[in-house]
């Protein structure tokens, strides 16, 4: 029987699955966007929350796979069954190359990833004859296998939800595996892990590539949702936003990046419709997070639960330990 954590995730997914029952197309499409960018944030968080590496180049993998799919489908009429694996492969290939950046640490790692990310952005922006430059690539066809085509937003929503749920469950297994523990060990003390006989480079490289693969998957989901891609997708802003989502929701957790995605996407796409100073509000949210919830939304909930559990312990002897203690900030 799967344990409580996995059940919680499935329950949350089931709740999300009810969105199309009571909300219009806009909310369905916004939920897709939240899920896709949440997945991107989760991929960033594999490095940030578990391995302690702050990567600012994940928009590159995201855009690489999106562009690959778009160019193959629009320019060369390649069917989706080939375009999607090709997109994932190109994004992951890029991660294999960019993975060399794990040889650096701390601020140098951040700088190297920023630079690498800008290379991809520059290519999408300047190689106009191939990538469409500023105008990007429009009119990506609906996802289709043979004659079976998904044209409705709601149908695609369920596809995205299933893929994201599968990915999240796999991610959960990964971070709880010995491999995940090694990553967390590296985050706490790299020298100690090395003295225990682990190879930090190899583990971090694999984590980087896996994280790049997840970002590529998010890119594929994104391109069939937007059916349009342009250099803004590869921009530094997207990488930063993914990191902010992870921090806002709570790093080192699974629901956290998605919660962060909810907050940012709703502010930007819904609140902006009736509140012109939504950017100020977003700034306030970040400040409040840093001051009062350094471990993000999930961290806040966890510490609140821990307090309750402690109180329960003093009155009731049967009380259990809280599931997770708030982790120290990277």
């Amino acid at each position: 029987m799967p344990e409580r954590g996995a059940l919680t995730l499935i329950f949350v997914a089931a709740l999300v699955a009810t969105v199309p029952l009571f909300a219009g197309d806009f909310w369905v499409s916004l939920t897709i966007k939240i899920l896709v960018l949440g997945l991107l944030a989760l991929s960033v968080d594999l490095l940030l929350g578990h391995a302690g590496l702050l990567s600012l180049c994940h928009a590159a993998f995201f855009a690489m796979s999106a562009y690959t799919v778009a160019i193959l489908q629009v320019r060369y009429g390649v069917p989706m069954l080939i375009a999607v694996p090709a997109g994932l492969a190109m994004g992951t290939l890029l991660a294999l190359v960019f993975g060399v950046s794990v040889r650096t640490r701390g601020v140098y790692f951040i700088l190297v990833t920023i630079a690498l990310g800008f290379i991809v952005w520059g290519v999408t922006y300047r190689w106009a004859s191939f990538t469409g430059g500023d105008n990007g690539i429009t009119n990506v066809p609906y996802p289709a296998i043979g004659d079976f085509q998904i044209t409705s937003m709601t149908a695609y929503f369920y596809v995205v939800l299933l893929v994201v749920l599968g990915c999240v469950l796999a991610y959960r297994t990964l971070v709880r595996s010995p491999f995940g523990l090694v990553l967390r060990g590296l985050k706490s003390s790299e020298s100690r892990m090395r003295s225990l006989g682990y190879s930090p480079l190899r583990h971090l490289y694999v984590a980087f590539v896996l994280s790049g693969f997840m970002a590529s998957l998010a890119g594929v989901l994104y391109i069939y949702f937007n059916r349009f891609v342009n250099p803004a997708t590869a921009h530094f802003h997207i990488s930063v936003e993914a990191v902010l989502m992870a921090i806002l929701g709570g790093t080192g957790t699974i629901l956290g990046p998605f919660l962060g995605s909810v907050v940012i996407m709703v502010l930007r796409n819904w609140v902006s419709g009736f509140f012109p100073y939504y950017m100020t509000l977003m700034g306030l949210v970040f400040i409040v997070t840093v001051l009062f919830a350094p471990n993000g939304i999930i961290g806040l909930v966890n510490s609140w639960r821990a307090r309750r559990a402690r109180r329960a312990k003093t009155t009731d002897a049967v009380g259990t330990e809280p599931e997770a203690q708030p982790r120290p900030q990277p």
């Binding site: 219009g24 909310w27 990007g136």
Partner: peptide, 24 residues
């Protein structure tokens, strides 16, 4: 008039256009 902010970002523009169509 229903005014929506695109922030000069194509991604936000496409989402806002969809919001105007579906919701407004």
């Amino acid at each position: 008039l229903v005014i929506a902010d695109t922030a000069c970002n194509p991604d936000q523009a496409i989402t806002q256009a969809r919001r105007l169509v579906d919701q407004e």
